[in-house]
Design a protein around this nucleic acid. Structure first.
Lengths: 194, 194
DNA sequence: CCCGCTATTAGCACTTGGTACTAATATCAG
DNA sequence: CTGATATTAGTACCAAGTGCTAATAGCGGG
């Protein structure tokens, strides 16, 4: 028997949080109080009923799925692009992109934004990265917005190559520089690199 | 009025597919048939009821969320590690990691595996990537397993630096090489890089 | 010991979005 | 016109609730 109402409600919140699929009846068994008590608790804590909770979770996935379709191809949001010339994308750093320990964005997200912008700028449906050099100049933290600017600095059409430089900034301060050697993939040569 | 039963059922399947949250009543309005007809249709097509559909979607997210928590820190699975010396991780390339057009793994996943292994090998709770040079030697396709081997090739403790080389292979063939200059972050210097 | 208060429990009617089943009616083809 | 298939209607029932009222338990103070 747990004691106070407050204790139970705290535990209840936690319990529902790490299993939103639990019913009032199951909870009443867990805390051995009546179902009505659980209901009252939910009211006070304004926790919605099972179905609403589930729906909430489901809607979230659904939106994520829909959202992730376009995102899948380019990391960050392209806000300006001139094919074969230059392009700009923005990327908002959220909790899921940082190390929990120090809130610093993990390198591969900066890389992903820059690299996918380099792919997008190529005036070619199929482009691959062959080489790249990266400099992580300053740590980026959750909540900051990274603006990546890509420029094509060299073209070697005979070799199916192009060189792209990407500079990423946060509040006008450069945080990352990357140069990418890109390979334009023609249909005949598909799958053959390097 | 749509005509045949078959046509309606095809449309019904599609309708539910791109909005699993629709009720029988709404569907009956959409196809102007009775609710019972919709129910019969669902039976024949063995489409579960609204709540079951929603629950299904919700459970999926839930599992994804739980799964993504450990993955969050290291991309790929570390199978061997000697701190400050060497480490090995494997990463299975799935559909979500490749360009749909050509089934080739996107560069940032190879980078992410290598980079997070470089972070992990550092015998330090807090490590950041300062610079890196990457070579994408061969395209990797969905279904392949990438084995990344990281080695610390140089240490500069006085400068809080270490150099890590990562070689990634698929079936013993090298597909990616990356060198990473890593910064060991001490508590005093936290947040200050470069 | 009783008063008052909060907490808990009980009970009932009602809601949504169904299942399961039966029966009636349409619709069309031979 | 008869049969088969399709559609609609209607009923009872379920889960997991809401919303409401009422009874009871436990305890603290005077």
């Amino acid at each position: 028997m747990k004691r106070t109402k407050r204790e139970r409600q705290t535990a209840l919140k936690e319990s529902i949080n790490d299993n939103p699929f639990v019913t009032d009846e199951e909870l009443s068994a867990e805390f051995n109080v009546s179902v009505q008590t659980i209901r009252l608790d939910r009211m006070e804590l304004s926790i919605p009923e099972l179905r609403e909770r589930i729906k909430h979770v489901a809607v979230k996935t659904f939106e994520d799925e829909v959202k992730s379709l376009p995102i899948d191809e380019v990391i960050g949001e392209i806000i300006d692009i001139e094919l074969d010339e230059k392009a700009i994308s923005i990327f908002d750093v959220k909790q899921e992109h940082v190390f929990q320990r120090n809130q610093i964005a993990r390198g591969h997200h900066l890389f992903a934004q820059a690299n996918s912008l380099a792919v997008a700028i190529m005036n070619e449906e199929l482009a691959l990265t062959v080489k790249s050099e990266l400099q992580f100049l300053r740590p980026v933290k959750a909540g900051q917005r990274i603006v990546a600017k890509a420029t094509v600095i060299d073209r070697q059409p005979e070799k199916n190559r192009a060189f792209v430089k990407v500079v990423s900034t946060v509040d006008q301060v450069t945080v990352f520089i990357g140069t990418f050697e890109m390979y334009r993939m023609t249909e005949q040569s598909e799958g053959e690199v390097g």
